[in-house]
Structure formats: structure tokens, C-alpha cells
Design a protein around this nucleic acid. Structure first.
Lengths: 225, 225
DNA sequence: GCGCCGTAGACTGTAGGCGAAAGACAATTC
DNA sequence: GAATTGTCTTTCGCCTACAGTCTACGGCGC
């Protein structure tokens, strides 16, 4: 399986090909939805979006189709696509599921993690703490996402990872105002989590992660009062 | 909100409307895949399917799109759709996730279930046992699915239910040869589960359901030897 | 004989168009 | 004046057509 060209394997930029149009439309729409440029309940007219993005209706339709199966838009027959309107109940259920998935990921990570993986986690944690100390909210949020993603990767379960990724994005969409406020305490909990994983302590890793994600739910409900 | 026509409210058959074509194509293809009429790895040519189903390529494309996001087919760019080939690793991961989701459903069901719900569960269980006693394998499998669906319904978490439904169908696809053999023991475990739910015992319900789904995994691995 | 290149076929990706259903609004009737 | 009905516009669902890309095979040079 060796290349005969002598070129290093990864160095070739792969001849940047702008993948299928539908995927780019999908990402564009997802961006517009998560940033609230398209508001919940809004009617998404295919021809309008197509014109706005400079493509035909077909790729737009396929992107909407996918967004529908992932729960971002509701596709009412013969009426079109509407940005999904999250309810309190659904948000709560989503958090329940996220807690479940993340806790399992922590447990699996505790069973599989090697030493080099743990140092990687600690580096991510440090970087996140630096961002918090520097009041870099966006950076802290980004590092938080990367840390959780790393834990999920260590769990080594792709099915779990895929589900968690979807649930996570939707949770972040619902809770954007909240998530940005949880700065300091969050990273203390991250430290505990890493320690538990390093100790190969499944029980504790699960418990810590469960408590960690449940805190987000509490924050949300407190905000309502 | 009374009708002035004098027609009985529910008796009108609602004018059977054959929903969107893409949905029917989706279900047709899903049926073909789960029944192995379309084998794993097989190249699905859009025009072929379209001609075979008597529709144009468009609904077929949209159905394939959806099947792709749900993990039934792989969509390689500029090459088309291929029926997903399940690997040992993936099957195992899928089972892990299913165990997780079902166990959580059992826990939630134990916290919410009312008395009438429990009698409903027991009726389903009885019917399943009758099917087993009568060597009605298809009937037993169907009742098994309905029982699990009922537990999921009692959990009252729609997000969880949707994820579990998807995972479940794929598990059933991977394990069809196995699932059909687990007849008798399975229903004993169901009885235990219902008892735990009736006692509002979250811990026990979770543990029983976990053991129950894990048995399927064991059966699978034993089969390989 | 072996390997490379070019060409042809097949299939996907995208665009545009037509018929039909749903909602809005105005005209009409009681 | 209120309800109903007819019409009209908007938008979707599906089909057809065309362009781009990948694969396979046969010819050509070494």
C-alpha cells in the first residue's frame, strides 16, 4: 500500500475539492439556524434560500431533508420547512439524554484511557483555564467543546459519539445564553473528571460527568426564576 | 367547534391520503434492506431503484439521503449509495448504546408508571408468553418489540424514544438470526422488569433491563464460536 | 508481456419547469 | 353583519434534461 510517487502521505492538500453542494448548503443553513439568523418557527422558503445562496432548489431541498431528520427543522407536508421551535419539555429531555451519553462516555474513557491520552486531556484543561482567566469567553466555550470531544474520542465508541454530537449541538443551541455563563466552576469539575479517568475509576468518572452536565440543567431552571 | 353537517366526528376515514412519495420510497427501501433483499455493500443505483419503484430519481435521492443520516446506507460522493456493511465492532458499539438507552427508559418508567400502565405491560407480557408457548416466533418477536416500545412510552421522553427507536431497528437488523432464538428466558426477564417497575424500584429496573439487553450480546458472541 | 494513457460508458450532481395543494382575500348570499 | 364560497397567489412535490465525474476497458508504447 506504499505510494510510488515518493510524496509524503498527508502533506498533499488533497486538491481541495468543494464537496457536494448539498453539504455546503447544509452547513450554511445550520450556521444560520444556530446563530439565530433564522429564528425558530420561521418559514423557510426553498426558492428564497436557493436564490440567497446562489444555487438551485434541489441542493436546498436535500439539505432541509437532512436538517429535518436531525431535528433542526420541521418538514410539514405540502407546506415546507419551518425552523424547529424548542419547547421547555423537549429541552429538558434533551439534557437528560445528553447527561446519559456523556456519563457513559466518561465511564468508557476511564476503562480505555492511556497515559498519553490523559496528558492530552490535561493540556486541554489548562488551555481552557487560561481562557477563563483571560475572560476569553469564546475561547473557553471552544475548549470546553474540545475537551468533551476528546473524552468522547477516548471512549472509542463511534455510535455513541455520533449520537452525542447531535444531541450536544442541539443542547448548545437551546442553552446558548446559559452555557456562556458557566465559567469557573465548570473547569474545576473538568479537573475532577480527568482525575477520575486517570485513576481508571469508572464509577467516579460516571458520577462526576453526570453531576457536571446536570449542573447545566440547574443553571437553566434557575435562570427562569 | 361543532360540525353543522351532522356527520359523526371520528367515523369519516379522513380520506386516505398517500403521504409524500419520498416517505413511501423511504419505507420501501428500508423494508428491502432489513429483509436482506438489498445486501450489505450493494451499490444502489438511483435510476434503477426509480424505475423499479415506478417513480423518478428525485424521491429516491431524498429517501437515500435520509437513510444515509440514519446509518442504513453510505453515501460516497460522486459514486452513489451503498448499503451499509455492519462490522463486528460497530454492532458491539450499537448494542452498548442500546443497553444504555433501554436501561434509562426502564428507570424513567419506574418513576412515572401508573397502575393502569402496569396492567397494560402485564397484558403485553402474557400475550408474548402465549406466542412463545404456541411456537409463534414472529408473534413473539412482535410482542417483544411492543413491550419494549411500551416501556419507552412510559418513560415519557420523546428524544430518548426517537434515538432508541433508530438504534433498536439497526440492532434488530444486525442480530436478526440471534434475536429469533431468544424465546423463553427473555420473557422471564420481562416479568422481572415489570415487577421492578411496579415496585417503583429505579435501581432494580435499570439493572434488570441492562442484564436483559446484555444477554443478547452474549448470545451473539457465543454464536460466533 | 507489462504498464500507461486515452476514450467510452454509466452514474451522479445540479438546474429548470410543470402540475397541484394550501392559504389568503374578496365577492356573494342569507 | 356573519358565514360561505369562489378565485388567486404562493409554494411545494415531482419529473425531465443537461453537465460533471468516476470507472472500466481497449489500444499503444516500452
Amino acid at each position: 500500500m506504499l505510494s510510488t510517487t515518493g510524496l509524503p502521505q498527508g502533506a498533499v492538500p488533497k486538491l481541495e475539492r468543494p464537496g457536494p453542494l448539498r453539504d455546503r448548503v447544509y452547513e450554511a443553513l445550520l450556521e444560520l439556524i444556530t446563530t439565530r439568523a433564522l429564528q425558530p418557527g420561521q418559514h423557510l422558503v426553498e426558492s428564497e434560500l436557493a436564490g440567497h445562496l446562489g444555487v438551485s432548489r434541489q441542493p436546498v431541498r436535500e439539505a432541509l431533508q437532512r436538517l429535518s431528520t436531525e431535528g433542526w427543522v420541521d418538514l410539514r407536508p405540502a407546506q415546507g420547512a419551518f425552523v424547529h421551535e424548542p419547547t421547555e419539555e423537549e429541552a429538558d429531555q434533551l439534557l437528560t439524554v445528553r447527561t446519559l451519553l456523556e456519563a457513559e462516555a466518561a465511564r468508557l474513557a476511564a476503562t480505555h484511557a492511556g497515559t498519553e491520552a490523559i496528558t492530552a486531556l490535561e493540556e486541554l484543561c489548562e488551555e481552557g483555564e487560561r481562557a477563563v482567566a483571560a475572560d476569553d469567553v469564546d475561547g473557553a466555550v471552544a475548549m470546553n467543546a474540545r475537551l468533551h470531544a476528546k473524552v468522547m474520542e477516548l471512549a472509542g465508541n463511534k455510535v455513541l459519539a455520533e449520537l452525542a454530537a447531535q444531541v450536544d449541538r442541539r443542547v448548545r443551541w437551546y442553552y446558548t445564553p446559559v452555557a456562556r455563563q458557566r465559567g469557573h466552576q465548570s473547569w474545576i469539575e473538568h479537573r475532577e473528571l480527568i482525575a477520575a479517568i486517570a485513576d481508571r475509576d469508572e464509577q467516579r468518572a460516571t458520577a462526576v460527568m453526570r453531576a457536571h452536565t446536570e449542573h447545566t440543567r440547574k443553571m437553566y431552571h434557575e435562570r427562569e426564576n
